[in-house]
Simulated assay, not measured.
Amino acid sequence: MFYIIVIFVVLLDQAAKLWVRFHMEVGQSIPMWEGFQLTYFRNSGAMGSSFEGYGRLFIIPAILVVIWAIYYLHKGMLNGIMLKGGVALFVGGAIGNAIDRSFFGWVTDFLDFGRGISNLADHAITLGVLFIFIHHLIICPLKRKKARSCTS
């Protein structure tokens, strides 16, 4: 299931970005509903356009995250559906943005909620982190309380 989630996130993210690149001009906005629009933006930095122009440097951490996740998965150290799912979402998002950075030197952002522009990979990473926190801050303590052990 881990690899299915990773592949799904990467394919969905890349398909959405491809659609934006082929159907929109940079800077163009398409209103969808109140408070949300599609806005094509090329982000050559990190989240929130920080480190503008240094986006390719984030390929290395993405590769390291993928290697770490696969190593921990194969060692059996990612226990529980919430933790595995969270790490898979994070890895899928990291790969999705790394693909953009590798080919273009920037990431295609297009989801505009009025507080910055993001993409599906960004949201997969955020949701993944949330799942990982839920695992470590809620599920693990409950398991420890019940069985006195939670290793991951």
Rank of each mutant, 00 (worst) to 15 (best):
R115M: 14
R115T: 14
G114L: 02
L120Q: 02
N97I: 09
R21M: 13
Q37P: 00
I134R: 08
H135C: 07
W106E: 07
N97R: 02
D109S: 07
W106P: 00
S50P: 03
G114C: 04
F133G: 08
V91E: 01
A147T: 14
V66Y: 02
L18D: 13
N97H: 04
S149W: 14
Y71K: 10
V87P: 01
M32D: 00
Y3F: 15
P61C: 09
K143H: 03
M47F: 15
G80K: 06
Y54L: 15
V10E: 05
F2S: 02
G55R: 07
L83T: 01
F22Y: 14
V91K: 01
R21N: 12
E34H: 12
I70M: 04
R42A: 14
D100W: 13
A16T: 14
T108C: 08
A88K: 02
F90T: 13
E25T: 11
W19L: 15
G105H: 09
M47E: 12
I70W: 14
L73G: 04
F131S: 09
K143P: 00
I7H: 09
A69Q: 01
V26R: 12
I95W: 05
P31H: 09
G93E: 05
M82H: 01
S44I: 03
K75C: 05
A15V: 08
F22T: 14
G55P: 10
F8M: 12
H123P: 01
G105V: 08
I63R: 03
F90E: 12
A16G: 11
K145F: 02
S152K: 05
V65S: 07
R101F: 08
I63C: 11
S102H: 06
A147V: 12
T108Q: 03
T126P: 01
I70S: 01
G48Q: 09
I95S: 09
G76T: 01
F36M: 06
Q37A: 06
F51R: 09
N43S: 04
V87K: 03
L18T: 15
G114M: 07
W19C: 10
R101W: 08
A46M: 06
F131A: 13
I139W: 07
A88F: 06
T39E: 09
W33K: 06
V129N: 08
L127K: 03
I59P: 03
G114D: 03
P61M: 08
V26P: 12
N43E: 05
I7D: 10
L73C: 03
G76L: 00
K143R: 11
I60F: 08
S149N: 13
I5D: 00
L142V: 02
A98K: 13
S50F: 11
K75S: 05
K75R: 11
L64M: 08
S102W: 10
F22E: 15
G27T: 02
Y40S: 09
M24K: 04
A121C: 10
R115H: 14
A69D: 01
N79R: 15
V65A: 13
D112K: 02
T126R: 01
G86P: 06
A46W: 10
G76N: 01
Q14S: 11
F110S: 06
R42L: 10
G45L: 10
Y3G: 11
P31K: 10
G80F: 01
F90M: 15
W68R: 04
D122H: 05
L142Y: 11
L120T: 09
H135F: 03
H74S: 07
P141G: 03
G27M: 06
G48R: 10
S149L: 15
V20I: 15
L127T: 12
A69W: 00
S44R: 08
M1L: 06
W33S: 02
A98L: 11
